[in-house]
C-alpha cells in the first residue's frame, strides 16, 4: 500500500528545491537540463502508478506522451486553438488512448501485456511517422507556449519555463499520490497483489485496470505538453518504444513502487547522461550495466534500497516474522 511518508515528502521537496536552485544559479544549459529532468520525471511517475502499484509494465508511455504532444500541435497549430484548451485536448487524448489500451488488453498479464503495450505504442508511432499532414518523420514546428502574460509571467524566459516544469512535476506527483491513497488506489494495489481474489470480492478488475492506465496516460500527457512547449517542435521519435524503455529504466533505477524513486531516477539518469556524454559517446553502456546491476541486486532501486535499510533499522528483522498462533 502506498504511503506518503514524511521522508518521501522531504525528498520530494528537497529535490525540487535543489533543481530550482540549479536552474536559477546555472545558465541556459542548466535550465534545459532541469526541463529535461522534469519531463522524464513526470513520465516516470506516471509509469510507476501503473507498473509499481498496478503491476502493469507498459512500453507505451512514450507513445502516450507523444500522442498528447501531437494532439496539442493539431489543435494549436493546425486548428488555431489557444494553447490552454489545446493542451487539455492533448492530455485528454492521451488519457483516452491509455484507457483504450487498458480496456482492450484487459485480461492479458505479464509478458503478453508488455507486448501488447509495445504493439499499441508502435502503432501510434507509425501513424505519426507516416502522416505527412503532421510533417511525418520530419516532425512539426511552430508550436507555442502558454501565454501567462496576464499574470505577469513570461513563459518565453528559460528560467520561468524551468520553474513551470518543476511546478508541473509537483502537481503530477501530488495527483498520483492522492489517487494512490484513495479507494481507487487501494483497490489497484489489491488487483496487483491478487487480481483473482479482487474479482471474487466484486471488483470489475478489467474496468479498474483500464481506468488506472487512463489516469497514468493522463499524467504522461502532461509530460507531452511540456515537451512540446519546451523546444516548440515535436517529432515521432518521442513515441518510439525505446523511449518507453528508457522511462522504465528510470523507474527501476529510482525504485519501482515508491513514486518518489522515479523522480530521483530521472535526476540521476539525465545528469549521468550529460556527465558521461562530456567524456565519451558511450553512455548507453553505463546505463545498461547500471540497469542490469540494479535488477540483479534485488531490483529495489535507489530509493527502494534506502527505504529498505531504514525499515530494517527501525524494525529489527524477525520481529514480525514470528507469528503467535491463535
Amino acid at each position: 500500500m502506498f504511503r506518503q511518508s514524511p521522508a518521501r515528502t522531504l525528498v520530494l521537496l528537497a529535490t525540487l528545491a535543489g533543481l530550482a536552485v540549479y536552474a536559477s544559479a546555472g545558465g541556459y544549459f542548466a535550465r534545459e537540463i532541469v526541463v529535461e529532468i522534469a519531463i522524464l520525471a513526470i513520465l516516470a511517475i506516471s509509469l510507476d502508478v501503473v507498473a509499481g502499484f498496478g503491476g502493469m509494465v507498459s512500453l507505451a508511455h512514450g507513445a502516450m506522451m507523444g500522442l498528447s504532444a501531437y494532439t496539442y500541435a493539431i489543435f494549436s497549430v493546425k486548428l488555431g486553438w489557444p494553447p490552454l484548451p489545446s493542451a487539455l485536448m492533448g492530455i485528454g487524448a492521451s488519457a483516452l488512448f491509455g484507457t483504450a489500451i487498458g480496456w482492450i488488453t484487459g485480461r492479458t498479464t505479464g509478458i503478453f501485456f508488455i507486448m501488447a503495450t509495445l504493439a499499441f505504442g508502435q502503432m501510434a508511432y507509425t501513424v505519426f511517422f507516416k502522416w505527412r499532414w503532421l510533417g511525418g518523420d520530419d516532425g512539426l514546428g511552430g508550436l507555442s507556449r502558454f501565454d501567462l502574460g496576464w499574470l505577469g509571467i513570461k513563459m518565453g524566459d528559460s528560467l520561468t519555463f524551468a520553474f513551470f516544469a518543476l511546478v508541473m512535476v509537483l502537481a503530477v506527483y501530488a495527483a498520483a499520490a492522492w489517487v494512490l491513497r484513495t479507494a481507487f488506489g487501494r483497490t489497484l494495489t489489491g488487483i496487483h497483489t491478487n487480481e483473482d481474489r479482487m474479482r471474487a470480492l466484486g471488483v470489475s478488475t478489467v474496468v479498474h485496470r483500464a481506468q488506472a492506465l487512463g489516469f497514468s496516460a493522463m499524467l504522461a500527457g502532461v509530460a507531452g505538453i511540456i515537451a512540446a512547449q519546451h523546444i516548440l517542435y515535436i517529432s515521432p521519435e518521442m513515441l518510439v518504444w525505446t523511449v518507453s524503455g528508457e522511462v522504465l529504466i528510470v523507474v527501476i533505477l529510482g525504485g519501482l513502487g515508491t513514486l518518489i524513486g522515479p523522480l530521483l531516477g530521472a535526476v540521476i539518469f539525465v545528469l549521468l547522461k550529460h556527465e558521461i556524454s562530456a567524456y565519451t559517446n558511450h553512455w548507453h553502456i553505463v546505463i545498461g550495466i547500471l540497469l542490469i546491476a540494479t535488477v540483479l541486486s534485488g531490483g529495489r532501486g535507489i530509493y527502494g534500497q534506502v527505504e529498505h535499510w531504514l525499515t530494517r533499522r527501525t524494525q529489527p528483522a524477525g520481529k514480525t516474522a514470528e507469528a503467535p498462533d491463535a
Binding site: T182, A183, F184, T193, R197, G202, V203, H208
Partner: peptide, 28 residues
C-alpha cells in the same frame, strides 16, 4: 493478498462489499 497486512486484506474486502472500491476522492 499476500503482500499486505491482515487489516489491509479485510479493508479491501469490506470496501469492495460496500461499493467503495472505486472512488478517487475518498480513502476507503
Amino acid at each position: 493478498f499476500e503482500d499486505l497486512s491482515v487489516r489491509e486484506n479485510l479493508m479491501l474486502a469490506a470496501a469492495a462489499g460496500q461499493g467503495k472500491a472505486r472512488s478517487i476522492w475518498r480513502d476507503s
